[in-house]
Lab assay of single mutants.
Amino acid sequence: MTGIVKWFNADKGFGFITPDDGSKDVFVHFSAIQNDGYKSLDEGQKVSFTIESGAKGPAAGNVTSL
């Protein structure tokens, strides 16, 4: 699925993605970002991701920028 990064705190390594389908915002951890180098996201960035079952509920996985 796709969405827009609502916010991401690079110091803490997590944030939230707002899915394009209008569903509830999804937690994203830096370890789910699939790019080389520094793993961070920018507010407003368009991303593709999967929904994984995290310890505290749904979380984004396999996050790639579009």
Rank of each mutant, 00 (worst) to 15 (best):
S48D: 04
F27K: 02
D21M: 06
Q45S: 10
M1Y: 13
V28Y: 04
L41V: 05
K6N: 05
G61S: 14
I51M: 11
E52W: 11
P19H: 03
E43F: 13
F16R: 03
G57S: 08
I17T: 00
G3A: 02
V63R: 01
F14M: 06
F8I: 03
K46M: 10
G13Q: 03
H29E: 04
A32C: 06
F30N: 05
T2G: 04
M1Q: 10
S31M: 08
G15I: 02
I4F: 11
W7N: 03
M1G: 07
N9F: 08
I51H: 05
T64V: 15
T50Q: 09
L41P: 02
T18W: 07
G57C: 07
L41I: 06
F27V: 03
H29I: 04
H29P: 03
D21P: 03
A60L: 02
D11Q: 15
V26Y: 05
T18R: 13
N9Q: 06
G3T: 00
F14S: 03
F49D: 00
S65V: 15
N9I: 05
G54Y: 11
G61L: 13
G13Y: 02
K56T: 10
K39Q: 10
F30T: 06
S53K: 13
D42Q: 14
D25N: 07
G15F: 02
F49A: 01
S40I: 13
K39S: 07
S53F: 15
K46D: 04
P19E: 02
K12A: 09
G22L: 06
A60C: 05
S53R: 09
S31D: 04
I4T: 14
K24D: 12
V47T: 02
F27Q: 02
I4V: 14
I51W: 08
E43T: 15
W7F: 09
A10W: 11
M1P: 05
K24E: 12
G61W: 12
D25C: 07
T50E: 08
Q34F: 09
Y38C: 15
D21V: 07
I51E: 03
F30P: 02
D42E: 15
A10E: 07
W7A: 03
K56D: 08
T2H: 07
L66K: 07
A10N: 11
L41H: 01
G54D: 11
V63Q: 01
Q45Y: 05
T64A: 11
A32R: 07
D25R: 05
V5M: 03
F30Q: 07
A10D: 07
G44Y: 05
M1W: 10
V5A: 02
G37F: 09
S23K: 07
T64I: 14
T64W: 10
D25E: 10
I33Y: 04
G44I: 02
S40D: 06
G22V: 03
S53Q: 14
K12E: 05
K39A: 08
K6H: 09
A10Y: 12
P19L: 06
D36M: 13
T18L: 12
N62E: 07
G44Q: 04
F14Y: 14
G22Q: 07
N62G: 08
S31A: 06
A55Q: 12
E52Q: 12
L66D: 07
A32T: 07
F14K: 02
F30S: 08
D36Y: 12
D21G: 08
S40A: 11
T50Y: 09
N9K: 09
D20L: 09
G61Q: 14
A59L: 12
K6Y: 04
F49V: 01
G3N: 00
M1D: 04
F14H: 05
G13F: 03
K39I: 07
V28N: 00
G22T: 04
K6Q: 04
E43C: 15
N35I: 14
T50V: 11
G44R: 05
S23V: 05
D21R: 05
S23D: 07
F14R: 02
D11N: 13
G57W: 09
K46R: 14
D25K: 04
V5T: 03
I17R: 00
V47D: 00
A60K: 02
G54H: 13
W7S: 04
